[in-house]
């Protein structure tokens, strides 16, 4: 590229710059940036960092935040492992109904969360189709306890890892696996040392997307959670409760805490990803 004087945009005969850029920037500002700025301004300028900390630093808030992030991590880890497995089965194996299954994986994207919430509750409630046998055999209750929250979050985050890993598996050159096999590696060793490292960056992307989605999830969780303060009360629900009490500052403080923690987590995952991509060479 030759050196040019600083311009925002390289010259081109393509029309529609003003219109398209204008629409994009206006809508981005009005719908995303200004509201986010108002939240931060409300928190830091009008409420104050020290006051926010005082609101967040209470047992009920901490346990809600911890629950939200813990449950999201558990569910996303399950989805990470199961997602890679399901993607592998969908790409490599042939079995009847495969295309149907492949299409059904996206159900959580299409099914409203409130519908998923009441349906999962109906099934996993102590008198539900699956809740009854589970409590009889294992002696555990699923609905109205933390495992119920895991189930809802696993449902919500299910498609992410599958959909990011699937195309990578489709593109794997079988010759690499053959080479590994001719060099005497067992199938398990080939999978562990040749295939899995190739899937890692995509799997991590899916994990991050699932995590981001499930940390903030509200609709499917509140039905199945039981919503007991300090036990099964998730952070988004606590924001709703604060708003219902007209405690706007409290709601803002918890919202900012949630955003701060999830952006830190996503940043960390991004860094791991950059590291793993670099380790693999440019993928």
């Amino acid at each position: 590229m030759t050196t040019r004087p600083f311009t925002l945009r390289n010259p081109t005969p393509m029309p529609g710059w003003g219109l398209s850029f204008g629409i994009m920037v206006t809508m981005l500002s009005v719908i995303v940036l200004m509201p986010m700025a108002v939240l931060l301004w409300r928190g830091f300028a009008s409420f104050g960092a020290a006051e926010m900390w005082a609101v967040v630093n209470r047992p009920r808030v901490w346990s809600a935040l911890a629950l939200s992030f813990r449950a999201a991590l558990v569910a996303s880890l399950f989805n990470l492992i199961f997602g890679v497995l399901l993607a592998w089965v969908l790409v490599r194996y042939r079995f009847p109904g495969k295309r149907l299954i492949d299409a059904a994986v996206d159900l959580p994207f299409a099914l409203p969360t409130a519908v998923a919430g009441i349906a999962l509750t109906a099934i996993y409630a102590p008198n539900g189709v699956l809740g009854t046998p589970i409590s009889e055999v294992f002696g555990v209750r699923v609905a109205y306890t933390e495992p119920g929250i895991w189930i809802a979050l696993i449902f919500v985050g299910l498609p992410f890892v599958v959909r990011t890993v699937q195309p990578v598996i489709e593109e794997i050159d079988r010759e690499t696996e053959e080479a590994s096999a001719t060099l005497g590696a067992s199938r398990l060793r080939t999978l562990n040392h040749v295939v899995l490292p190739m899937l890692a960056p995509a799997a991590l992307t899916g994990f991050a997307l699932a995590l981001a989605r499930s940390v903030g999830e509200y609709g499917s969780v509140i039905f199945i959670a039981g919503n007991l303060p300090n036990v099964t009360e998730i952070a988004p629900l606590l924001i709703v409760i604060r708003l219902e009490e007209f405690d706007y500052d409290g709601a803002v403080a918890i919202a900012i805490a949630m955003l701060a923690i999830s952006f830190t987590l996503l940043l960390a995952i991004n860094l791991i990803q950059i590291w793993s991509r670099r380790r693999m060479g440019a993928v």
């Binding site: 509201p35 986010m36 108002v38 939240l39 409300r42 997307l209 981001a212 989605r213 940390v215 903030g216 999830e217 509200y218 609709g219 952070a235 988004p236 629900l237 924001i239 709703v240 708003l243 706007y248 709601a251 803002v252 919202a255 949630m258 955003l259 999830s262 952006f263 996503l266």
Partner: peptide, 14 residues
């Protein structure tokens, strides 16, 4: 995508 729906609602209430 990385903002909780509840926070999204809160933004417009604020």
């Amino acid at each position: 995508f990385s903002v909780s729906p509840v926070v999204a609602g809160l933004l417009f209430v604020l």
